[in-house]
Nucleic acid binder design. Structure first.
Length: 562
RNA sequence: GCGCUUGUAGCUCAGUUGGAUAGAGCGUUGGAUUCCGGUUCCAAAGGUCGGGGGUUCGAAUCCUCCCAAGCGCGCCA
């Protein structure tokens, strides 16, 4: 419709003496229904160009446009306010689109904008040092849902998890397990106390690292090792302990993700970047460009020349790279794999690192604009009205699994999605548990279940989808209102995907549910005469498709009964 | 001190490319319902869009200064 109107509008403007060459015509959906179905401000924009009052220009455009457009599509062109042009759609246009929606069914909302192009979404990317926490949850759900949205808009998407199992973190993890294991082998070994928080101490074996991981899962891993190997594990080598911990923890992470409906396509181990030499190639390439130098035995990246106030270290004087270097090499690898778009999801604490990575990638000749970052603000967990400090190492966290146990998988996903990624998310655990019955996700699922119930019942009393409906019977305000809301789905999904903001879909679905309940309140199906009932059945079915497709894109289930 | 993000109703948050009377949920108050699912609906009250200045036909939205909060600013990741 917008393309149709734009075409005629441009023709009209040409007749009136022409608009500037680069003149953009924008349409918007008015908030106020009295302002029609679509509006444009072209007359306001052109006031200066034509040197006439906007209102006067609008009148002339409206008159010329009315003579051109097909009355079966556009019922009215009106001038309002300071010079807006408001368009009112013809009923026939609505029913045609409803038929299209019903024909598309479970594919309604899919567009092929990204057809033939490949996107990589990298998310979660937590090192396997412990179970996923609430903080990871926002990352996981955002990444997966953005991937879904890209798929709905035609992209071929790869979901990737990047991790490092060779660094210091992992060594400490192995040492933590080993210390617990030793205590099992010899319960009489001396113990010490580690401070976990204010007046909160934990008793650990003496060989336990001071910055070790205190979670109970470490003890469980040690117990499993003891059960399997007895006292036979060589205690000097930390490797078997690390390996065992990594395996167990990764399996746990994968299970948590699966529970959330997330299936990764690839797991990328940072280690491969050392094995294939990519890391050193990056250093040399940057050195050739003149952006690398050595000082104090370390290798530095001249980020000051890129606008930062300090240079950054790529390789420590110990010879060990900092995380930044493999990060750069990793992104180079992504480019070499030929992705058209690369999306990184990470928390606000990583804000400082990615400009370096992008700058390096750009220096190496890649189009850094293809790398997009979803930077989400932190989740503050609130329990009993007070914020909970969370640390994986100190095991003072709430795991994602615990959260799902408490509020359910669908609520967990929806909760992380209903707000813009760049606002701080206050997660009140007590409220989340207690309010589960009035949680917005239930409202949406309930609307869907109710539609299913109505359709079941309608079929029981003899109405059927086999009959071709006469959709022109749908003229009630609640019916046309519902239709107009339903038709927004493709555009909402497109914009949500483009902006990488799933919360737009969540907000929209609420509008759909509201529009449906209004329809439900005013228009009955069972009890109406056959033709009208059949038409309304189809409208309800259309609402069901939209709710289902939208919720599916968000990764949320759509039960037929609740 | 510098950088990024945020500041909108009592609370939690939407607000698209600068548009018309700034919206929703929760909460509060009042009301509806013999009904296809009461996990429902309707209505009211509630606003200095953090503050000042600027840009223009028009600003919550863009620019600038100030205030406040979160995060970051390491040869940790």
């Amino acid at each position: 419709m917008e393309a149709y109107l734009e075409e005629h509008l441009r023709a009209v403007l040409a007749d009136m003496g022409g608009a500037p060459d680069d003149f953009a015509i924008a349409f918007e959906k008015p908030n106020n229904p009295e302002h029609g179905d679509l509006a444009t401000n072209v007359a306001l924009k052109l006031a200066r160009h034509f040197r006439r009052a906007p209102r006067q220009i609008a009148e002339e455009i409206a008159a010329r446009l009315t003579a051109r457009v097909d009355p079966a599509r556009v019922a009215a062109v009106e001038v309002a306010g300071p010079g807006f042009l408001n368009f009112r759609f013809a009923e026939a246009y609505l029913t045609d689109r409803l038929a299209d929606l019903l024909a598309a069914g479970e594919d309604y909302g899919k567009i092929d904008e990204g057809r033939g192009r490949r996107a990589l979404v990298e998310f979660v990317s937590a090192n396997p040092t412990g179970p996923l926490t609430v903080g990871h949850g926002r990352n996981a759900v955002l990444g997966d849902t953005v991937a879904n949205l890209l798929e709905w808009t035609g992209w071929a998407v790869t979901r990737e998890y990047y991790f490092n199992d060779a660094g210091r973190q992992m060594r400490v993890l192995g040492e933590s397990v080993r210390a617990r294991y030793r205590a099992l082998v010899d319960p009489d070994l001396p113990v010490k106390r580690i401070k976990r928080g204010e007046d909160d101490f934990v008793e650990v074996p003496e060989s336990f690292p001071d910055d070790g991981y205190l979670g109970d899962y470490i003890i469980a891993i040690a117990e499993a090792l003891y059960a399997e190997h007895g006292a036979s594990l060589g205690e000097e080598d930390v490797e078997p302990f690390k390996k065992a911990a990594e395996e167990v923890i990764f399996a746990d992470i994968a299970a948590t993700l699966r529970r959330l409906g997330i299936e990764m396509d690839t797991f990328f181990n940072e280690h491969t970047l050392y094995e294939n030499g990519k890391v050193w190639e990056v250093v040399e390439a940057l050195r050739e460009k003149g952006y690398v130098y050595e000082k104090d035995g370390a290798v530095w990246f001249k980020t000051t020349e890129l606008g930062k106030d300090q240079d950054t270290v790529l390789i420590k004087s110990s010879g060990e790279p900092t995380y930044r270097l493999p990060d750069i090499a990793y992104h180079v690898d992504k480019f070499e794999r030929g992705f058209d778009r690369m999306i990184d999801v990470f928390g606000a604490d990583h804000i400082a690192t990615y400009p370096d990575v992008l700058a390096a990638v750009r220096l190496l000749g890649y189009d850094a604009d293809r790398v997009e970052v979803i930077l989400y603000q932190f989740v503050t967990l609130v329990r009993g009205g007070a914020p909970v400090k969370m640390s994986t190492r100190k095991a003072t966290y709430v795991t994602l699994d615990e959260l799902m146990d408490e509020v359910g998988e669908d609520v967990t996903r929806f909760f992380f999605l209903m707000r813009s990624p760049h606002t701080h998310l206050e997660f009140d655990l007590d409220l989340a548990k207690e309010a589960s019955e009035k949680n917005p996700v239930f409202y949406l699922q309930y609307a869907h279940a109710r539609i299913c119930s109505i359709l079941r019942k309608a079929e029981e009393v003899g109405f059927t989808f086999g009959e071709t409906p006469d959709l022109t019977l749908l003229t009630h305000e609640a019916e046309t209102g519902l239709m107009k809301t339903l038709f927004e789905l493709p555009e909402v999904l497109r914009r949500a995907a483009a902006a990488k903001e799933p919360h737009r879909v969540a907000n929209y679905l609420r509008e759909v549910a509201v529009a449906f309940t209004q329809f439900y309140g005013h228009c009955r199906i069972i009890g109406e005469e056959r033709a009208l009932a059949t038409a309304r059945m189809h409208l309800a079915q259309a609402a069901r498709h939209v709710l289902r497709n939208g919720l599916t894109a968000l990764g949320i289930s759509t039960p037929e009964r609740m």
